[in-house]
């Protein structure tokens, strides 16, 4: 057994974390879907509409950031250290957070409060939880970036590159699903 090539422990650990996360979001999303199916009008008539068209730019931003991360990991597996790709990923992630934060402030100004009812409760909670995940993913990738800047040997860092990358893929691929459910559904 030990002679075979093993998957690194960090990758197994992140796979398990992502499974737990999927179950976590499955709990939230299924609660949301059932709540919306039970309601008479969804979204409620007296609530302001959400900005669907500005927000779709955010979907694109996150997906593009994942694409650049994919290029980076592909190169890293060949031994090429191209940190600019990683930098673009980080910048796009920050841009996403800024746009999303601005939208939140706008919505609060429009008068959507968490205590207004189920619709706003779910909207704010799910967006906030996803936002926290983006922040955590960014912290992981930024620490990776800083560590890679110091080392020249990229192979030793490959386990953490793939593991953190996996987490970022998860966060970015989750967002289109949430966008569809919260803004369009």
């Amino acid at each position: 057994m030990t002679n075979k090539k093993k998957i690194s422990g960090l990758n197994i650990a992140f796979t398990i974390i992502i499974i737990t996360e999927i179950m976590f979001f499955a709990g939230l999303i299924s609660a949301y879907i059932i709540a919306s199916a039970k309601a008479m009008d969804w979204p409620p008539i007296d609530q302001p509409r959400l900005p669907q068209y500005i927000s779709i730019s955010n979907v694109i931003i996150l997906l593009v950031s994942s694409l650049f991360l994919y290029f980076f990991i592909k190169n890293a597996k060949k031994g090429i250290k191209d940190l600019n790709f990683l930098l673009i990923t980080i910048i796009l992630g920050i841009v996403f957070l800024v746009i999303q934060g601005k939208e939140w402030i706008n919505l609060v100004d429009f008068g959507i409060q968490t205590s207004d009812g189920l619709y706003a409760s779910y909207f704010y909670s799910i967006i906030a939880v996803h936002g926290i995940h983006v922040v955590v993913g960014l912290i992981l990738i930024i620490t990776l970036y800083l560590k890679l800047k110091k080392t020249s040997d990229i192979y030793t860092k490959l386990p953490s590159i793939t593991a953190f990358g996996m987490f970022w893929y998860f966060v970015t691929l989750l967002w289109p699903v949430l966008y569809f459910l919260l803004y369009l559904y």
């Binding site: 976590f24 979001f25 909670s125």
Partner: peptide, 17 residues
Amino acid sequence: FMFSVGPLIAGTFMLLM
């Protein structure tokens, strides 16, 4: 435990909210 705890963490979060 890993498979089942996610929904309860979601529920705990919602209850805290």
